[in-house]
Design a protein around this nucleic acid. Structure first.
Length: 277
DNA sequence: AGAAGGACCTGCACGC
DNA sequence: TGCGTGCAGGTCCTTC
């Protein structure tokens, strides 16, 4: 569920609340699918270490902790329904809690994920190539910092629909179903258009719309469609700004034409047949 | 090479 | 009430 703005909100919130804290104890649920790194190894890597920073890379939350010998990175991918929360130890444990990090001051960081598409893992910087780009970074570019020319070049010669290209994490990081639909609406481009056939002008419009939508969503704490909450359990507000996402059959807010819903790249896709060409 | 489709999970809203 | 269906913010693997 969480896309770039939601992951950014959670990562920033976590950083503000837990940077500098020591992890004294780990509990894990024993659901093997959740743990890309085996639970014993994860527990070993985190117990007794101090949290240096928490940041977002693509849709991954990267928690850097000072290990006994070297700093390691604790990677949290929220999947569709993952939540990362800071709470007091007295709080009752929510169903589908899969990991709890107890901090030295008694608070806890909890990972809760009903559908279990989320993944937890430990990444150790390579000793041979400590400066090598981390594997979780992937080849995709960050949409908030990519230049206009590089953005246009990403889609050149691609026959795939522009929406599928936006969702492809090896091209762009962090764009998911909501922000793909919303940015295409704001750019006036139909989701099925072949990426490689968009004009430079259209792609520049798309980049501008995507950056605007992502920035505004970060400002509003992300989109809470059903169960997304930030590190304090607080919902976001960008869902109130959705123009097409999950509005199939409802009138377009600009021209009143019913919003159309199709399936594209296996995902529900929403657009205005009048405003988007 | 690259794209479609199914698989992985639980929960909820809907219709009968 | 209760069941069956379809759908949900993501990604990975297989197939074509």
């Amino acid at each position: 569920m969480p896309e770039l703005p939601e992951v950014e909100t959670v990562a920033n919130g976590m950083h503000a609340r837990v940077a500098g804290e020591r992890i004294v104890r780990i509990w894990t649920s024993g659901k093997p699918q959740t743990f890309k790194t085996p639970e014993a190894e994860l527990t070993q890597a985190l117990t007794g270490s101090a949290i240096e920073s928490v940041r977002r890379v693509g849709k991954t939350i990267v928690m850097t902790v000072s290990g006994k010998k070297q700093a390691v990175e604790f990677l949290i991918h929220l999947g569709m329904t993952g939540r990362l929360l800071v709470c007091d130890s007295g709080q009752p444990m929510a169903p589908h809690t899969h990991a709890i990090l107890t901090l030295a001051d008694g608070r806890e960081v909890r990972f809760v994920d009903p559908r279990r598409f989320g993944r937890l893992s430990i990444h150790k910087p390579s000793e041979k190539k400590p400066d090598a780009p981390a594997s979780y970074t992937g080849p995709g570019r960050e949409p908030l910092t990519i230049s206009a020319d590089d953005f246009v070049a990403l889609f050149r010669h691609r026959k795939t629909p522009i929406k599928a290209a936006l969702l492809n994490q090896s091209l762009l990081h962090g764009v998911g179903n909501i922000y793909a639909d919303e940015s295409l609406f704001r750019a006036g481009i139909r989701p099925r258009r072949q990426a490689g056939r968009l004009t430079r002008d259209e792609l520049l419009r798309l980049r501008k719309a995507l950056i605007e939508v992502l920035r505004q969503a970060i400002k509003l704490g992300g989109s809470s469609v059903s169960d997304y909450v930030d590190a304090d359990g607080v919902r976001g507000f960008f869902q109130l700004q959705h123009k097409v996402y999950m509005r199939g059959g409802e009138p377009c807010l600009v021209c009143k034409t019913p919003i159309q819903r199709i399936t594209l790249a296996g995902r529900g896709t929403h657009f205005c047949p009048n405003c988007q060409h």
